[in-house]
Computed example of a mutant assay.
Amino acid sequence: MSMTPDAAALLGEWDELAAVAPGDRLYRTRRLSRPAQLDLRAGLREIDGAPCLVALPGGAGNSIASFETAGLRLSRAADPAGLLLVLSLEEPSRRDLFAEICSDCIRTVLRWEDEGENELVTVLAARLAAWRAFLRDQTSGLSRNEMVGLIGELLVLDRLLDENAEAVAAWKAPDDGLHDFVLSGHGLEVKTALGPTRQLHISTLDQLDDAGLASLHIAHVRLVESVSGDTLGQITTLIEQRLNGERARSAFRNALLRRGLLPGGDANAGPRVACAGIDGYAVSDGFPRLLRNDVSLGIAEATYQVEVRALAGFAVDMATVLDTFGGTGNE
């Protein structure tokens, strides 16, 4: 992750605070010039000089869950000025990453303020939760195969947005959902291949279980590399531009971060692809699959491959699937 100007400025703030004589409070802080509607400060913890991002959230801070992961800690502290919400760095070796995370959270809050929104504490909490999810699983970018999988999900999301402007809410993969998309009882699993493929990879015994669902379908996204195609960064930008209002765009950016995509990356990174087609399959009786109730009790989990040629009898029109799935949110 390269250092952004905002992150560099925060590092400068912490260095300047380090030159200030210690006081009798838990933190020495300096309020940022913006946002205007939320008291947000660069800070240092007095006891050990750990850099912090400190917010005075008022009563709204009581509902924000504390956490500690990957060398970062979100906690509350009592102060004469009121309740403090403190994001602190617990592993000094991650100082640059911490600066990037703090600057990203500040930018997120400023976008909302610029749009006239005033729920800034909630906005900050949602962005911190997205970073927590990202850091729980990784601290670097996606692998090539993970990029390909995410591109497939985003291409399906783009088509669902044609039918339902609220389709981002149906995207459950960023929250480790069992199925990539779920809306009004309908499930959609996305399988993506770059180049020729004969098999679909199934990662759990529950992934093709349609119990409790009105329907379950597979969208098999077929990609080819093309110099005139789009990268992951370009695809995310195009989708974000389709969304109306900062609330929807922020939800999408948080979902991308939870899904493992670092913000502010090189838009040209990764493969440049074109969609050769999306094939639809209905998961129903007789579909070739392993279900948890069908395997021996001693088998805790399994991954397996399904031959694409064995699915011809389950093929459905993908446009119809997307129309039904996307339209269910508008009933």
Rank of each mutant, 00 (worst) to 15 (best):
L208R: 05
R31K: 12
G245V: 09
L142R: 04
Q241E: 05
S88F: 00
D24F: 14
T29Y: 05
L188C: 02
P51N: 11
L26V: 11
V273M: 03
D209Q: 01
F287I: 05
T324H: 06
V295E: 09
G298E: 13
V86Y: 00
L238G: 06
F314G: 02
L142D: 04
L53S: 01
A130M: 07
P51T: 10
A170F: 09
T192H: 09
L56C: 10
L85H: 08
N164I: 08
L290T: 06
A267I: 15
E166F: 07
L200R: 02
A21R: 15
A310F: 02
L223I: 00
S2G: 12
L157T: 03
R253L: 13
A300P: 08
A36K: 12
S88L: 01
E163C: 13
F67G: 06
I202K: 08
A130G: 10
F98L: 02
Q234D: 10
D15T: 15
D48V: 09
D317P: 01
E46A: 14
A274F: 04
N268V: 14
W171K: 02
A8I: 09
A302I: 06
G265A: 15
A170V: 08
L238P: 01
V321K: 04
V295I: 14
I235V: 14
L238K: 06
T303I: 10
L243E: 07
D6S: 11
A125W: 00
P80Q: 09
